[in-house]
Computed example of a mutant assay.
Amino acid sequence: MNKFALGAVASTLTFAFAIEAAATEWNVSVWGKRRAFTEHVEKLAELVSEKTNGEFTMNISYGGLSKNRENLDGISIGAFEMAQFCAGYHRDKNRVVTVLELPFLGVENLAQEVAVSKAVYAHPAAAEEMEQWNAKLLMTSPMPQYNLVGTGDPRATLADFEGMRVRATGGIGNAFKAVGGVPTSVTATEAYQAMESGVVDTVAFAQHAHLSFGTINQADWWTANLNPGTVNCPVVANIDAYEDLSDAHREALDSSIDEALDHYLANYGELLKKWDSVLEEKGVAKVEIDEAVLAEFRATAADPIRDAWIKDMEAQGLPGQELYDLVVKTLADAKSGS
């Protein structure tokens, strides 16, 4: 083989090794099964792969890498590069974002939920707290207001909530506790069994989760307008993995986040359109709570829980009042279109 041929072979091998070295593969830990709640993660993986011609890929694992309560711990030790978790699973580890789980904030739709989440995630206190877990906040998993499914007679008054065993986490759990309920924070994947075995009487979920985890199949009724709040479930990346990305791969990831969220919102919107037909198909009664009951619920739960949260955060050296005010202002701006 002449020196020109040898040179060509060497160049080809060098190019091949460069391509191989440039490839990035991330493992992503979520749970359950693919559903509306994970569509932005799926879309993000799709967009990143497209933008990098397959050089940056994400392997999304539904429960194969970690338990859902342990995803943040897995991120902190670099067991995987990206994960989804819910603040209510470990409130002590992600105190800042729990402002988004306060009951009766007044969020009316998913776009507003995205707006307030983005504002809080961008606050220095949120980034600083997540750095303790080697985690970078990428995007939220916006969910509608939670509502209850239950068995037996509908719970339509505050007196009905007295002693009610409810699967509810975070601020929603605190809201039910304030009116005499007994919240339990079993994970989403445990909710069906808890309902089936009678450990809980009711389950508070967003619509997709009632479908995905089967609680709707146990239900006799669903509260259409209780709307006590929702949970906040960030998607995070391991900071070291994020910083190790090439400039091109990091740009592909960063530029895909809003696209992935837009896809999520459109997909969830289709699910919400079909919700009434799902209830009818499964024989689940729609319960409309009287406005006077809702007002009483808000008065009993919202103000005291908010004030206690702010006081607790400030005592821990976190800007509780500032974070709450940020949510209120961002929500007002979102509602006014400014």
Score class of each variant (00 low, 15 high):
residue 151 T to D: 01
residue 40 H to V: 13
residue 117 S to H: 10
residue 213 F to P: 04
residue 189 T to D: 06
residue 169 T to H: 03
residue 100 L to M: 13
residue 49 S to E: 15
residue 263 H to A: 03
residue 42 E to F: 02
residue 305 I to F: 03
residue 329 K to H: 06
residue 21 A to G: 08
residue 99 V to Y: 01
residue 13 L to E: 10
residue 52 T to M: 00
residue 98 T to V: 05
residue 97 V to Y: 00
residue 261 L to S: 00
residue 39 E to S: 15
residue 77 I to M: 07
residue 248 A to S: 11
residue 189 T to A: 02
residue 150 G to Q: 08
residue 20 E to F: 13
residue 60 I to K: 08
residue 308 A to Q: 13
residue 7 G to I: 14
residue 257 I to K: 00
residue 77 I to D: 07
residue 210 H to P: 00
residue 271 L to S: 13
residue 41 V to Y: 04
residue 289 I to K: 05
residue 242 Y to N: 01
residue 203 V to A: 00
residue 157 T to N: 01
residue 4 F to H: 12
residue 137 L to D: 05
residue 153 D to T: 15
residue 304 P to Q: 08
residue 279 L to V: 05
residue 182 V to F: 02
residue 216 I to L: 04
residue 33 K to Y: 01
residue 285 A to E: 04
residue 324 Y to L: 03
residue 303 D to Y: 11
residue 91 R to F: 05
residue 66 S to N: 09
residue 277 S to H: 04
residue 254 D to E: 15
residue 164 M to N: 05
residue 1 M to I: 12
residue 236 V to I: 08
residue 255 S to R: 11
residue 232 N to H: 12
residue 144 P to Y: 10
residue 56 F to Y: 06
residue 190 E to T: 09
residue 119 A to W: 09
residue 254 D to Y: 08
residue 127 A to S: 11
residue 270 E to D: 07
residue 255 S to D: 04
residue 318 L to Q: 12
residue 106 G to Q: 06
residue 30 V to F: 11
residue 216 I to F: 09
residue 240 D to M: 03
residue 95 R to N: 04
residue 88 G to Y: 15
residue 253 L to G: 09
residue 334 A to G: 11
residue 327 V to L: 02
residue 104 F to M: 13
residue 182 V to G: 03
residue 118 K to Q: 02
residue 53 N to Q: 09
residue 75 I to D: 04
residue 209 A to Q: 06
residue 251 E to K: 15
residue 105 L to S: 04
residue 299 A to T: 13
residue 306 R to C: 09
residue 8 A to C: 07
residue 324 Y to D: 11
residue 179 V to R: 05
residue 4 F to N: 14
residue 33 K to M: 07
residue 104 F to A: 08
residue 271 L to I: 10
residue 73 D to H: 15
residue 103 P to R: 07
residue 39 E to W: 15
residue 211 L to N: 10
residue 324 Y to T: 12
residue 136 K to I: 09
residue 336 S to F: 00
residue 72 L to C: 02
